[in-house]
Simulated scan of single mutants.
Amino acid sequence: MVRLPLTPAEVERGERLGALLRRARGERSMLTTALEARVSPETLRKIESGRVATPAFPTIAAIADVLGLSLDAVWAEINQPDNDHVPTP
């Protein structure tokens, strides 16, 4: 199966997601967080670094649960409007 290239918006959302998870994890170890969420540390590392811009929903739900994040908060963070882009009237 061939995956279509990610759009710039998808890449940006992935970067926002990674930044949110890194902030929420704080000083917790990546290994501990990944094991508690039942995902591999490599998967968590890739998501946090933005290399996996569109992770599976159950993966994000499990990580968010371990970090005490609501899915509403995750959704709001990754779908915030681009503050650098000024719409043309």
Results as ranks from 00 to 15, higher is better:
57 F>Q: 13
51 R>F: 12
21 L>I: 01
3 R>G: 12
87 P>W: 06
49 S>T: 02
5 P>K: 01
40 S>M: 03
54 T>W: 04
17 L>N: 09
67 L>G: 00
61 A>C: 06
35 L>F: 00
35 L>C: 03
46 K>A: 08
33 T>A: 11
5 P>S: 02
78 I>P: 03
60 I>C: 11
62 A>F: 06
11 V>S: 12
27 E>G: 08
76 A>W: 07
76 A>Q: 14
9 A>S: 02
83 N>K: 03
70 S>W: 01
86 V>F: 09
10 E>W: 13
64 A>Y: 00
52 V>H: 08
48 E>S: 03
22 R>G: 09
19 A>D: 05
7 T>V: 15
59 T>M: 04
76 A>N: 05
47 I>E: 00
24 A>Y: 12
59 T>P: 11
89 P>D: 06
4 L>A: 11
87 P>I: 08
54 T>N: 12
38 R>L: 00
60 I>D: 10
9 A>K: 13
21 L>T: 07
55 P>L: 03
37 A>D: 01
75 W>S: 09
72 D>Y: 10
46 K>C: 07
13 R>Y: 04
15 E>P: 11
68 G>P: 11
60 I>Y: 06
64 A>G: 05
84 D>Q: 10
45 R>Q: 08
67 L>C: 00
32 T>G: 15
85 H>V: 11
33 T>C: 05
72 D>T: 14
48 E>P: 12
83 N>L: 12
56 A>G: 11
9 A>C: 13
2 V>E: 05
42 E>H: 12
82 D>K: 05
67 L>Q: 08
26 G>A: 03
12 E>H: 01
73 A>N: 10
33 T>K: 00
62 A>E: 06
35 L>H: 03
39 V>P: 04
29 S>A: 07
77 E>W: 06
29 S>E: 13
34 A>N: 05
79 N>P: 09
23 R>F: 15
12 E>P: 01
21 L>H: 02
75 W>M: 15
9 A>E: 15
26 G>M: 10
78 I>K: 07
3 R>Q: 11
7 T>F: 14
71 L>H: 02
11 V>F: 05
38 R>Y: 02
33 T>V: 06
80 Q>D: 15
77 E>C: 06
54 T>L: 15
63 I>F: 06
53 A>I: 08
33 T>D: 03
18 G>C: 14
20 L>D: 02
73 A>V: 07
10 E>G: 09
14 G>F: 10
49 S>P: 01
51 R>V: 00
89 P>Y: 12
73 A>W: 08
8 P>H: 01
59 T>Y: 09
43 T>R: 11
64 A>V: 00
63 I>P: 01
61 A>N: 05
30 M>P: 15
40 S>D: 13
33 T>M: 08
81 P>N: 04
13 R>Q: 06
26 G>L: 04
82 D>Q: 08
60 I>G: 00
68 G>S: 00
2 V>S: 02
87 P>M: 08
26 G>R: 00
25 R>S: 07
43 T>Q: 10
81 P>F: 04
32 T>C: 10
84 D>F: 02
70 S>P: 05
78 I>Y: 14
27 E>W: 02
4 L>I: 04
81 P>S: 05
80 Q>N: 12
61 A>S: 14
54 T>Q: 07
57 F>D: 13
36 E>Q: 05
62 A>G: 15
41 P>Y: 02
34 A>P: 12
52 V>L: 11
5 P>M: 00
37 A>E: 01
31 L>V: 13
37 A>V: 01
